[in-house]
Design a protein around this nucleic acid. Structure first.
Lengths: 216, 216
DNA sequence: GCGGAAAATATCGTATACAAAAATAACATG
DNA sequence: CATGTTATTTTTGTATACGATATTTTCCGC
């Protein structure tokens, strides 16, 4: 439980947008949110500011705040950028990774493997984050790492769904191995290429998922 | 004059950070800022939130807000990412640009040329922004365009200095022509490569500039 | 009955007041 | 003199109150 009311509101609304309880275009009324979260308007306003800042809402001057859930198109666009950033991280990591960092990378991939063997998709989810975190740390560009992390967080809620797609975890692991191999051998171009594909495949899976959801 | 006090404070502090009046690590005291800008603490707090959101300040819980001017290293890192994003925009634009957009791109470059002939570096600055804006629009990925714009804004104040470096404007124009040529011929790889270099050269110039400033 | 103007109402942005938490300072005790 | 405890003070976070502006409603003239 966060000590800050503003943070609670922010995360609460964020959650409700991600889960679809708050739909695109819906009005984020300050008074209603204040009542719903049992706080005053002040922290609600701060939360809304942050939501606008992180692109989850839009503020039409003197008209109010509205939910801005990413459209299908925007999701694809975000994946396109994500694949570029992941590729860049891997490319730089291939050149700059230290021995210790390489060991940590390999270790985290083994843990991914164990999670699959245990058929624990939640565990896999976390270990997968760790795997990519290793690459971000190893890219030697903290700004890039932070930007990539930020975008990852934004795609996170959708990403969690993707892993439940049949066979995705195993396939993902194969791709991880390819990434590791490229980084280990210092092949920047290959690391870049494989990482991009790793993300874009998820984008395609996401596509499948949406299509599947729309059918039912 | 902005109608919002919060915005005035935000832009004011942003400006003072960019110009070095507010130095790295300096405390952003709510009460002082409120007095300085002749407003109450409420809009000051909103401004600080936005500053933190855009990475210009850090908030240590229960300790206050502090200026976080990018270090030299961070600047280099940001340029590294910027070159990747610009490259991506150009690469996608090479594949997706429409005839009208291509014409607009060529037009804005001619205007850059005129600005140089008139030796008007301020005008060149704006026309240069327009030139790149054309590419962003043509990349067919609005999310990417917005991210690139955002990072450009963040590097903006430094960028303005770079243009005053001797001969930079003319050199920049040559690079623009190369970018246009690559995009016109639909050579995505070339567009990517040239655009990256276009940005990275600026990064290097920035490096020169800093080195020069440190000497004096 | 319809269009437009004016009043009423809602809502946003800002100011101020208050409460809670933490840092600093002062003090007492060993 | 040092250390631990307590009090003071600073500062943060939240609530509420007020003024301004936009929107809606109502009412009057046509």
């Amino acid at each position: 439980m966060s000590s800050r009311a503003a943070t609670r509101v922010f995360q609460g609304v964020e959650e409700q947008i991600a889960t679809g309880q708050l739909k695109d275009g819906e009005k984020l009324d300050e008074a209603s949110l204040a009542k719903r979260f049992q706080v005053s308007r002040t922290p609600v306003r701060e939360a809304l500011l942050q939501l606008v800042g992180s692109g989850l809402a839009t503020q039409i001057p003197k008209r109010g705040c509205f939910v801005k859930a990413p459209s299908f198109r925007e999701m694809i666009e975000m994946f396109e950028v994500m694949s570029e950033l992941e590729g860049m991280c891997a490319r730089l990591a291939a050149r700059r990774i230290s021995d210790e960092q390489l060991i940590a990378l390999e270790q985290s991939n083994r843990e991914c493997e164990n999670a699959i063997k245990a058929n624990d998709s939640d565990l896999y989810y976390h270990k997968n984050v760790e795997f990519h975190e290793c690459i971000y740390s190893a890219c030697g560009n903290r700004f890039l790492a932070e930007e990539t992390r930020s975008l990852r967080r934004r795609l996170q809620s959708f990403r969690r769904l993707q892993l439940r797609v049949r066979g995705r975890m195993t396939q993902s692991l194969v791709e991880h191995s390819e990434i590791i191999e490229a980084i280990r051998s210092g092949d920047a171009n290959q690391a870049d290429r494989v990482s991009r594909e790793h993300v874009m495949i998820q984008g395609e899976r996401f596509n499948d998922l949406i299509a599947h959801m729309e059918q039912s």
